[in-house]
Amino acid sequence: MKVDHALIERVAKNARLELSGDEEEEFLPQFQEILDAIKKLDEITVVGVEPALQPVDLSPNLREDKIRPSFSQEISLANTKHKKDGYFKGPRTM
């Protein structure tokens, strides 16, 4: 897998991460080195192996879907200055 500027830029765009030119230069060889190291997994065959998405088989213990007391709007909004009329305020989407 060859890492080039186009790939780094595409990944950064998907990750919503603006990279400076210097960062891109710095990350490119590092990214390449990491992917080369990861290539070691090519040595292993995994045909017929089930993926492990959790390390322990835990049946999900979900509580009953009933409304319970929760944070007030005031507490929920306490950590932001971007709010208006009891709602979070964000950048425009269109």
Partner: peptide, 15 residues
Amino acid sequence: KIEGDFNSYFSQVRA
């Protein structure tokens, strides 16, 4: 400061 669309705002804050 909230400026631009959400993609550019998120990308800048994260950067």
